[in-house]
Design a binder for these strands. Structure first.
Lengths: 253, 253
DNA sequence: TGAGATAATCTCAATATATGAGATTATAGC
DNA sequence: GCTATAATCTCATATATTGAGATTATCTCA
């Protein structure tokens, strides 16, 4: 009467519990609210499907089969198609240029671009740029693990593109810390003298930074109010894109 | 009457089809043998769960939610526990020492060891060794992508540990090609003068090399017959370990 | 090594749930 | 705007899931 694939959802919920930590059957039963017999049947099916691996009594782990399926997930292919409508909307709403990018080999790779009314920005999709000087780049660097971030910073030198470019390791490290804390980055004429930009990260449900989106345009238009509104818009869009990709496994709405 | 979680298996089969290539609903229906209405219901559930991402009409992709769950899969934790019983059996059957290892940063990391009767081998679990000179190392190198393999080879130098160690890039490249083709490697006294070894890869269902297992011992005992029998035993074990971890998603028995 | 405790497994009738043919609606392509 | 094709919905029916309880396997620790 109400087809909801309850069966599949139950299996999924068990999968999630196991992904959270290895558990025994009665514990899983308690956590999921399902009777032991039912949990047992599901676990058996999950193990047979290769989604779980049963080490021993009371110890289930996520299995290779799941990892193999997930290997078909291609972020760089899925991100631009999922993000483009949001970039379009942002470009329209702000009148400025919207970008979506990921970090690859410490370089920013631009995956999608939507120009605004004032097309003051010259970038190409699939182009690569240095990370330390742009808003997108700094957000992405701020999402790196402490180790990787440290390694990047010690790998300089950082060439000055304008008088505002951050070129010293110390200040750059501080800037990245601040960005990680506040959840967004500014580019204050660090690439071009007349260009500013606001950037925010796109995160998965664990909070890992997967990609970033930004709005850039003529420096004069970036008033405090505009910056604030744009940041909010970007953050909303970033969240929507993440959800569209299937983050947080439908736990929340 | 026969609880088989058919529902879950159907969802899984659809997942696999999507992982294989983006498809439209009627195609999926044809491939899976299920009616369109049913496929539709499943796809909806899969998308809601974040396992799939629907780009547009006829274009489904593997979703972030699946990738996130799979992130909980830890090969280095699961491999040794899954492999140990097989190593034990191999050590007992051959009387020699069995190893299980993975490649990390171009170095062989030993994850598990089971000593045979003649404990002629001195390794430690979790120790790291150079890859170019051991059977395990060569099997793992042979499983690298052509690019990565080339990069490794050009990164020498390869220090000679015995008169038999392969130290030249050309012969090493040839050796790796041969290993990739034949599916197993020999260590002919390349680490110690009196030590030989047979090694085979553990692969996932796509054929990617995940890890390797080996049998090593006194060189004199490695007669052609012994080598052949040992190789067969190793290959069987490698296959069993992969299956135990949940490869090939229960497609075959 | 064995007794006690706890986890895994099995069975089967009751019943909630998935099913799918067919009609309808949305969307793409031209 | 028209046509072809994909997506979606409905609902009576068949069927697979369910789970309490009994049984068996497996650990733990004296």
């Amino acid at each position: 009467m109400t087809p909801r694939n309850a069966s599949f959802e139950k299996a999924l919920s068990l999968l999630r519990f196991v992904a959270t930590g290895t558990r025994d059957l009665p514990t899983l039963a308690a956590l999921s609210g399902l009777p032991t017999a039912t949990v047992h049947r599901y676990m058996k099916a999950l193990v047979e499907a290769g989604f779980l691996y049963r080490e021993k009594r009371g110890h289930y782990h996520v299995g290779l089969g799941l990892a193999e399926l997930a290997a078909a997930f291609d972020l760089n292919m899925v991100l631009p198609v999922a993000g483009r409508p949001y970039l379009k909307a942002l470009a329209k709403a702000t009148g400025k240029t919207a970008h979506l990018a990921v970090l690859e080999d410490d370089m920013v790779t631009y995956l999608a671009k939507e120009a605004g009314r004032d097309a003051a920005v010259y970038t190409l999709e699939n182009a690569q740029l240095e990370a330390y000087c742009s808003g997108l780049g700094k957000v992405l660097l701020a999402g790196l693990s402490p180790d990787a971030r440290q390694k990047y910073i010690s790998n300089g030198p950082f060439v000055a593109l304008t008088a505002h470019t951050i070129t010293e390791p110390g200040p750059l490290a501080q800037e990245l810390d601040r960005i990680a804390q506040h959840g967004y980055a500014m580019d204050d004429c660090e690439v071009y003298d007349t260009l500013k930009c606001v950037a925010v990260p796109i995160c998965n449900s664990r909070g890992d930074v997967l990609a970033a989106i930004s709005i850039s345009g003529a420096a004069d238009d970036f008033t405090p109010d505009f910056i604030d509104l744009t940041r909010q818009r970007l953050q909303q869009a970033a969240q929507d894109i993440a959800r569209k990709l299937g983050t947080n496994n439908g736990i929340s709405q």
